[in-house]
Amino acid sequence: MAKSVAGPEIEKLIQLLAKLPGLGPRSARRAALHLVKRREQLLSPLTAAMAEARDKIGVCSTCGNIDSRDPCTICTDHSRDQSTVVVVEDVADLWALERAKALNAAYHVLGGVLSPLEGVGPEDLTIRQLIDRVEAGGVKELVIAVNATVEGQTTAHYIMDRLEGLDVKVTRLAHGVPVGGELDYLDEGTLAAAMRSRTTL
């Protein structure tokens, strides 16, 4: 095993950075070195921002978004159609839809998808809270915007079963050919979904 040439403080920084998604040991070493070299411009402000995030940012008790307010900025925005709730797997999906400015609606973050193989059941997600929101009234449409994976579709079907008998319209994102996509480069599952979701011109 190679002996470390850095002190324990640097090694600890590298190990923590390596735990971030998308950063392996090599990328973490480069990031740590860059931060230390630019401690005044980067490391000090980053440390302050992380401490502020730790102290002020939490999870919205209504939708599951992260914000410094509870309820969050989206849930308290009266210009949004609060009767339409977009159901997503993760906060990152919520942010992606917000960047696309596709729908000015409310959200509900599930916190993942059902996955028996990984031991994730309904009680591990916020499905009960979603049903409670619908039962409380005011929600007219749920847009199921989960990923088009087996687990995502299983989760969508489970939610639809739990909503049976409730007065709410349930829709889902269309799946199929992306804008600018060429048929020859698409996989069979995407093509089949596009064909099933065909619309009138």
Rank of each mutant, 00 (worst) to 15 (best):
K169N: 09
G189W: 06
T126I: 02
V179W: 02
V91K: 08
P178T: 14
L35A: 05
A49Y: 03
E98A: 03
V170W: 02
E89W: 11
E9C: 04
V146E: 00
L42G: 07
G165P: 12
R133L: 11
T154H: 03
C60D: 12
V168H: 05
V139M: 01
A105C: 10
L16W: 08
N147I: 03
H175G: 01
R133E: 05
M50L: 15
K3G: 11
A32Y: 02
A28P: 13
V139H: 06
A148L: 10
G165T: 03
T73F: 13
G119Y: 07
S61I: 09
N65V: 11
W95L: 15
L142E: 12
L97T: 03
V88K: 06
T62I: 15
A106R: 10
C72V: 15
S61F: 10
I57S: 00
T200N: 01
L97F: 11
E11L: 13
V88M: 04
L23E: 13
V134Q: 05
T126E: 12
L142H: 04
L46A: 02
L201N: 14
A49H: 13
L23S: 15
V139Q: 07
R38V: 03
D81H: 00
K56D: 01
S68Q: 11
A48D: 15
R196C: 00
A102T: 14
K37C: 01
S4T: 11
V91R: 04
A48R: 15
Q82H: 15
V87P: 00
V109H: 07
C72D: 10
E9A: 10
I57W: 00
R172A: 06
K169P: 01
T76A: 10
D67S: 15
A193S: 11
E118H: 11
A136M: 02
V113L: 01
L130W: 07
A28K: 07
R162D: 01
G180W: 09
T149Q: 10
A18M: 07
T149Y: 05
P25N: 07
Y107C: 09
D67R: 14
Q153V: 08
P122V: 04
R128Y: 05
L46E: 07
V85P: 02
G119D: 06
